Computed example of a mutant assay.
Amino acid sequence: MQFFQRFKDFAIKGNVLDLAVGIIIGAAFTTVTQSLVNDIIMPPVGKIIDNVNFSNLYIPLDQKARGIPTVEDARKAGAVIAYGNFLQNVINFLIIALVVFVLVNAVHSLRKKEAEKPVDPPAPTKEESLLIEIRDALKAMQPGNTNPS
């Protein structure tokens, strides 16, 4: 029974929940970034470099796979090194890394600005307020003080 209680305490802790939320957001972010690369960035890049479809770039290792236009068909014909897919994944990684870098820098900048803001002094505690009243009362009782409060 103690095992289940410890597991429940572990699972309910904020760190585990934060980690789970981070993983879910990361997976969604990866999907969006892959769509950005595959659907928006790579088509113009392919058009600029003579209508090259990166996903179909490969090096045939078997004579039978030579000259086949798609990497899937070439794989059926023989062994190939599909470097186009690798290029696509490298570009995905670089874009994700750039976006994460920009986001982290923005968060650090906001935190730095927040830390640089002047902090108002805390309100005096009850004890401090009482001591201030006592001090002021003692000053008022001193001889020569013509300003009664």
Rank of each mutant, 00 (worst) to 15 (best):
K126M: 09
D9T: 08
V80W: 08
F86H: 11
V71T: 01
P121G: 05
L110I: 10
P122D: 01
Q142P: 08
I41A: 02
G78Q: 05
R135I: 08
L131S: 03
P148M: 07
M141T: 14
K113H: 15
R75P: 00
P43S: 05
V100Q: 00
V71L: 13
E72D: 05
T125R: 09
N85G: 03
G46H: 07
N145S: 08
V45R: 08
A106T: 04
K8L: 11
I96N: 02
K113P: 02
A79P: 08
V52R: 01
P69A: 14
A140P: 03
L98G: 06
G14H: 05
P69V: 06
E114Y: 06
E116M: 08
K113Q: 12
I81R: 15
R6A: 03
F101E: 11
A74Q: 05
L94R: 03
F3A: 05
I40W: 14
N38V: 07
G67S: 05
P148H: 04
L36N: 04
D136T: 06
Q63G: 10
F29R: 03
K117D: 04
Q63C: 00
G14W: 03
V21Y: 03
I12A: 00
F101C: 07
L110N: 14
K126D: 12
P124Y: 00
Q2I: 13
K139S: 11
F54I: 01
A28D: 09
E116Y: 15
G84M: 13
N85P: 09
Q63I: 03
G26N: 03
K76N: 02
L57R: 04
G78A: 04
N105R: 00
K126V: 10
A74N: 02
F4M: 03
H108E: 06
L87N: 00
V119W: 06
G84C: 10
L103G: 10
V90P: 03
R135V: 09
N15A: 11
L94T: 11
I68T: 01
A106E: 07
F101D: 15
M42D: 07
A82Q: 14
H108P: 00
G22S: 04
M42K: 08
R66H: 02
K64R: 11
G84F: 02
N53Q: 15
Y83M: 00
A11Q: 12
D18T: 04
N15E: 15
V32Y: 12
A11Y: 09
P60L: 01
I48Q: 05
K47W: 15
G78F: 04
L19M: 08
G144Q: 14
D50W: 14
L103Q: 07
T125H: 15
N147Q: 14
S109I: 10
F86L: 09
R75S: 10
I68K: 00
S35R: 11
S55A: 13
P43W: 09
L103V: 09
V21I: 13
L61P: 05
S55P: 08
G144C: 06
